[in-house]
């Protein structure tokens, strides 16, 4: 492995990791600034709090990274969150013991996500409709379905134990944070070390060349939408648990937050370039920004503007770096 330690190899490695690195520096800067401005910011409690608040979009963003790496997009995730939330909470209200109802609810949430992702996958691969259109349609279809199913009213009266999922803590760490970490660790391993992960990058980099190298590109595309859907489904039940109800208008505009996290994390919308670590940092950057601005009592209207500016700045820096 002589070549691997040569100066050029190091510079190549450096160049490759710089996108994560650059955004990482932004994250550290942000943490330093908020620590100076608010004494409460850099406390264990607040850090756990941020992780909890970011966990739901971060979990979906992991799935979205798979999709965007293939040069796709999934706009339906916010609506999947709502539909999975209302259906999973309804499952909890079946007249079965909680030991059955609980797993059933999780299963329902997962299935909703997988079904949504599969439908997207079929339209994208078999009928060659662009992902933007397919998932835009699914976005309104699932949102509408959630409203029709609940008649616009939230699903209330859930067993108390259900709130464990979204609000419980294990060794002081919020359960959604643990789930998020698990999702990221698995996603990292899958993208970085497995054949499937390699194929995701290949399909996003050059779909036809990937097909001609023997990759079943349709299967890969199908899978990434399933993964993204499944993670949105899980997020749906987590959010329902935190709100202790199934809300048909839950997850509104989540797709934008999620895409923002992925893009700020340096993943190219054209596919083939990006990383799960970047997305994690992107999601945290946005989460910390929200949290910090809240601590500083910045109003939510101003927060929207600041968030937009940060997205532009982050992507701009990324472009400058590439030159």
């Amino acid at each position: 492995m002589k070549g691997e330690s040569s100066p050029t190899a190091i510079s190549t490695a450096l160049r490759r990791s710089l996108s994560e690195f650059g955004i990482g520096i932004a994250l550290i800067l942000e943490i330093i600034i908020f620590s100076q401005l608010s004494p409460y910011f850099f406390t264990a409690e607040n850090i756990l709090n941020v992780s909890l608040q970011s966990s739901i979009t971060a979990i979906i963003a992991a799935g979205m990274t798979f999709v965007i790496l293939t040069a796709g997009i999934d706009l339906s995730v916010g609506s999947v969150v709502a539909l999975s939330g209302v259906l999973a909470t309804s499952a909890l209200k079946f007249d079965v013991p909680l030991s059955t109802g609980f797993p059933l609810a999780i299963l329902v949430a997962l299935i909703i996500g997988i079904v949504s992702g599969s439908i997207a996958g079929v339209f994208i691969t078999k009928f060659s409709i662009t992902p933007f259109i397919v998932t835009l349609a699914l976005m309104t279809i699932w949102r509408g379905t959630a409203f029709i199913y609940t008649d616009g009213r939230p699903v209330w009266g859930l067993p108390e134990e259900f709130s464990m999922l979204g609000s419980g803590r294990i060794f002081e760490v919020p359960v959604p944070t643990l789930i998020m970490l698990a999702v990221y660790i698995v996603s990292y391993i899958v993208l970085k070390y497995t054949r499937f992960g390699r194929y995701v990058y290949a399909v996003g980099g050059n779909r036809e060349a990937a097909r001609l190298a023997g990759i079943n590109t349709n299967r890969i595309l199908f899978c990434v939408y399933m993964i993204c859907g499944a993670l949105a489904g899980i997020s749906g039940i987590l959010l329902a648990s935190r709100m202790n109800s199934g809300q048909p208008n839950a997850g509104l505009m989540y797709e934008l937050d999620v895409i923002a996290a992925v893009v700020v994390g340096g993943t190219s919308l054209f596919g083939g370039r990006g990383s799960i670590v970047g997305t994690f940092i992107g999601a945290m950057l946005i989460g910390i920004l929200r949290n910090g601005l809240n601590l500083l009592n910045v109003g939510s209207y101003v927060q929207m503007v600041v968030l937009g500016v940060v997205i532009l700045l982050a992507v701009m820096l990324d472009q400058i770096r590439k030159r």
Partner: peptide, 18 residues
């Protein structure tokens, strides 16, 4: 360039792809 290679992937990854 269009049908053979994944441009942004490493030489190593392109060789092993199939």
């Amino acid at each position: 360039n269009r049908f053979g290679l994944i441009m942004q992937m490493a030489v190593r990854e392109n060789i092993s792809l199939a």
